[in-house]
Amino acid sequence: MEYFLQLFSSGLTRGSIYALIALGYTMVYGIIQLINFAHGEIYMIGAFVALIVSGVLTIYGFSGASILVFAAVVAVIYAAAYGYTLERIAYRPLRGAPRLSPLISAIGMSIFLQNYVLLAQTPDFLPFPALIPEFEFIEPLAHIIGSAELVILTVSTISMIALTALIKYSRIGKAMRATQQDMHMARLVGIDVDRVISVTFVIGSVLAAIGGVLVGSYIGQINFYIGFMAGIKAFTAAVLGGIGNIPGAVLGGLVLGLSEAFAAGYISSAYEDVFAFGVLVLILILRPAGLLGRAVKQKV
């Protein structure tokens, strides 16, 4: 039972990171039907900014939790700027173009950002300081969940609740929902659609950057390539939950994370990816639109 709970907490932790990143994919897709392949790179840039900021702060003698908060804030602002710029230069000019064009543009931006960080920083792995403070747990809890995991779970839960509240109750959230339902109609009733799309990219980037900072200090190392695998996994999670559906992305992330952890724990960690993608295939066979997705009628 303890072993099961250990695997459960491990799966929940990585699942919530997947969910954080998947939200960015799914929100963008929900509004402009674009798979933003450069999203994983925003996550990576968030982690890099946090690393640089925490390095500077350490020199100035700050400590522990204050560095984490400050580095995360700077990373979030920086990543948001990247997300906004990305949309502005790579996707907005292609708004009326066939759907394939922005997709190619997204892949191009992903390659560009990876190589930019590779050249501007380093191709090697960099050590990431353990910013999340360690605190003691009482047995038997200590063997099941660590402080880093608890912080990751808490922060991602808060982020997701905040996002839900934003979309449900705020003016911009209402505008986002309207744009998602019908972009032309939204424009007709006076919603600045371009601004809504920009905001969507910014929100997605903020979540990705939070994920980057958390993962960086959880596993203690980053390099320019970490966004790729995280992006693929998060994209899988978004599809699993039904792309375009926000609760679906969260559910998809958790399902993916848990199935990986249990596959690693009970079968073999050599096959955790096989198992994770196997779950994806299975769910798509049974529910082609994803767990919570609704089938959209194609107008021919």
Partner: peptide
């Protein structure tokens, strides 16, 4: 005796194992 996936986000499951 087990392989782990390079670049995976976390190895805590295999460590519990």
């Amino acid at each position: 005796y087990e392989g782990v996936t390079p670049g995976a986000m976390d190895y805590s499951a295999v460590i519990q194992k």
